[in-house]
Design a protein around this nucleic acid. Structure first.
Lengths: 240, 240
DNA sequence: CGGAAGATTGAGAGTTCTCAATGCCTGTGG
DNA sequence: CCACAGGCATTGAGAACTCTCAATCTTCCG
């Protein structure tokens, strides 16, 4: 199977075999991380760009009162910090959620790769999708109550994971605690727990032992008001 | 005074006089919009990139239940839809909030301009700042209650407007209704109203007749837990 | 088997929402 | 120059949603 980032960048279209060959150099330096470690911290000035190869991590920000907000889940194929090519320092942290493997890519290699227009375009595309996902999260947190909000996040992850081959059928592995889920949703873990129970009782989805099973895809999408258009997936992947 | 987008892109550094000269071509086709009109709609495939020259607009998304969530305020100097260079269609709408002036820039001109590395870098920089702002909004909506949330938004707008010369001192024009403010904050206008009252009574800030006056900058930043680092402004501008 | 982390549940408090009424300000027409 | 209409802002009261704190149950793993 192709590396996830190839599957992902393919969605941007127009990559030829040469591009794919060049991109494989991203994998030259892959390092393991244990679960719940910081991969990069706010304020860091890393000299590598990091790409998720295996496992899950998240962007997050700690607040003064000790609460945490997760602003993105990073799955295989996602770039952690393309922005440090431009910014001086990280304005948020990235932490592993599971044991994972991360490619360390020298800035110079990124510069070299982006001389290929198709690759530069694919990376820009990836960054714009990230932006669209952030907007969707804002809508989610601003205008949906707990049940619908959780449903939307699950629909999104389902679609994204299918796109990189990690969600066959209507279930997928979600290696998060309810606490981590709540940090992403802007809720408390207690309320997430109660709401998951309701989703289960309503026959929409279950989440047990880090496994999501969507029992009723159309119904879940309906209450979530989920439209995958913002993910800009290749035709067909978001459907179903 | 320079056009706002020059002031803004300058923050990315490294623009020389030639670049600034080239960028001035962005202003060749400026069109007026009345307040509360759509400039671009979800699903559109515009053939121009739009740049705010004067007035305010916002990105927003309508939900099935008729509620609205604003995901960004666009002020002079902001690019509305650089993404349509890459994506087929808009995944959200952009609407004017005030009467405003918008530059229509042919895609071809963007392509031409981005052949200059410094300009390409500046545009990428702008897009990354947008992303950082989106993350800050997520943190805001997820982990701050109403008073602190409003305070944070006001601190952010204050810093951004100072950067383009639109907020001398500790006050600035905010041409929004409380309804529009609430659509951005994920609150109801009634609650925004009550909370503004509290902010006023606490001597932190006032909002009357579309004018924000920050009465106590350090205190407002304190309750908002505001750190302007994510805006990546030139040294000094975010400070006070 | 014992611990520790995570999930679940209960009860009560706090925040935010909904619905509805009232007040204020501005622009228009008489 | 004044009356009036319409759009916002403001306020009240009660309902709904979410949070906090704390106890208990499960699961996982050494």
């Amino acid at each position: 199977m192709d590396a996830a980032f190839l599957l992902k960048l393919q969605s941007a279209g127009r990559l030829n075999d040469g591009d794919r060959e060049r991109l494989s150099k991203l994998c030259d330096d892959i390092r393991p991380f244990h679960a719940r470690r910081d991969i990069i911290r706010e304020g860091d000035r890393p000299d590598h760009v990091h790409v998720m190869i295996e496992g899950w991590s998240c962007r997050y920000k700690m607040l003064a009162d000790g609460t945490r907000q997760i602003t993105a889940f990073l799955v295989p194929g996602d770039f952690c910090d393309a922005q440090i090519t431009i910014f001086d320092e990280m304005d948020h942290s990235i932490g592993s959620l599971t044991d994972c493997k991360v490619a360390f890519v020298p800035r110079a290699l990124i510069a070299e790769l982006t001389e290929q227009p198709a690759i530069a375009r694919a990376l820009w595309w990836a960054s714009l999708v990230d932006e669209a996902v952030l907007r969707a999260w804002i809508v989610n947190m601003g205008r949906r109550e707990a049940q619908d909000r959780i449903a939307h996040l699950i629909c999104e992850l389902h679609a994204r994971l299918r796109n990189v081959g990690l969600a066959p059928g209507n279930s997928f592995e979600l290696p998060l605690t309810q606490e981590e889920l709540s940090d992403a949703l802007g809720l408390t873990s207690v309320h997430v727990n109660r709401t998951l129970k309701r989703l289960r009782e309503d026959g929409l989805m279950t989440f047990r032992r880090q496994q999501i099973v969507i029992t009723d895809v159309p119904a879940l999408r309906k209450i979530a008001d989920f439209d995958p258009n913002y993910l800009h997936l290749p035709a067909g992947v978001g459907e179903d």
